[in-house]
Amino acid sequence: MSKQANFQPDSKSAQKWLERLLQSPNALIILFFMSALEATIVPIPLELVLIPYMIIEQKRIWTIASVALAGCLFGAAIGYYIGFALFDSVGQWFIDYLSLQQYYDSFQQTLKDDGFIAVFLVGLTPVPFQTAMLAAGAAGFSFTVFLLAAGLSRGIRYYGLAALALWLGPYAQSWWQKNASRLGWSVIGLVLLAFLVFHFT
């Protein structure tokens, strides 16, 4: 039995995308745009496709993680620009379409208080990342710092998933679903502790 048959993603949609990636000679290009779409307008966790794809294509697992990160940052740059230049029209539509108003309102103040940490933490938590993109752009927050924070947080996510796929193999998906929230909050706790120590010493 093949690795693909041993691993069953949790949704039919994810299975279709996985099959499309496996059959396409342009799989990495498709993955790039999938990651960009997930970062902007598709509220479906990329892990449902990414983890099984990494398990099946272990020989290029780090390339897959890098492409996913690049696609996410591409989508993040688009979202930032929308917030910066088109917030009153397209940006507000995004917020309404994805029901982000509450997240957006609370994130604005956090962004003012400590922008880098705010963006970084949103990249690790279940809070929709679109919130950070639109708010950072609308506030005129430094684009370089925004991309750096997004790259670090999403890099932890994608390269962490690659390491997890290598370590646990076909069991990575179920392990991730059970422990992702706990792991995410543990990382956040360590980041906040390091920030407080650095800030007050």
Rank of each mutant, 00 (worst) to 15 (best):
M1P: 08
S2M: 08
Q4K: 11
A5C: 00
A5K: 12
F7C: 11
Q8F: 05
Q8L: 14
P9I: 06
D10Q: 14
S11F: 05
K12C: 05
L21A: 09
Q23R: 12
A27Q: 13
I29T: 15
I29M: 14
M34T: 04
M34W: 03
L37W: 12
L37D: 04
A39V: 02
A39S: 14
A39K: 09
I41R: 00
V42G: 01
I44V: 15
I44N: 00
L46S: 03
L46T: 04
E47H: 01
V49A: 01
I51K: 09
P52D: 02
M54E: 02
I55N: 03
I55H: 05
E57P: 00
I61F: 00
W62D: 01
S66K: 08
L69T: 04
L73D: 03
A76F: 02
A76H: 05
G79A: 02
Y80D: 01
G83E: 01
F84A: 12
A85K: 13
L86G: 06
F87S: 03
F87Q: 06
V90M: 14
I95S: 12
L100K: 04
L100T: 06
Q101D: 13
S106R: 11
T110G: 13
T110Y: 09
K112R: 08
D113F: 08
G115Q: 01
I117R: 09
L121I: 15
L124E: 01
T125K: 07
P126T: 11
V127G: 07
V127E: 08
P128I: 03
P128Q: 10
P128K: 10
F129P: 08
Q130H: 05
T131A: 10
T131Y: 08
M133C: 13
A138Y: 09
F141G: 10
V145L: 15
L147G: 05
L148A: 15
L152V: 13
R154C: 06
I156Y: 04
R157E: 00
Y158K: 02
Y158P: 00
Y158C: 04
Y159F: 15
G160V: 13
A162C: 04
A163I: 13
L164Q: 11
L166H: 04
L166Q: 14
W167T: 13
W167P: 00
L168Q: 15
G169K: 14
G169F: 09
Q173I: 13
K178C: 02
A180H: 14
A180V: 10
W185S: 11
V187N: 09
V187S: 06
G189W: 07
L190C: 13
V191Y: 11
V191D: 06
L192W: 05
A194P: 00
H199P: 00
F200D: 05
F200H: 15
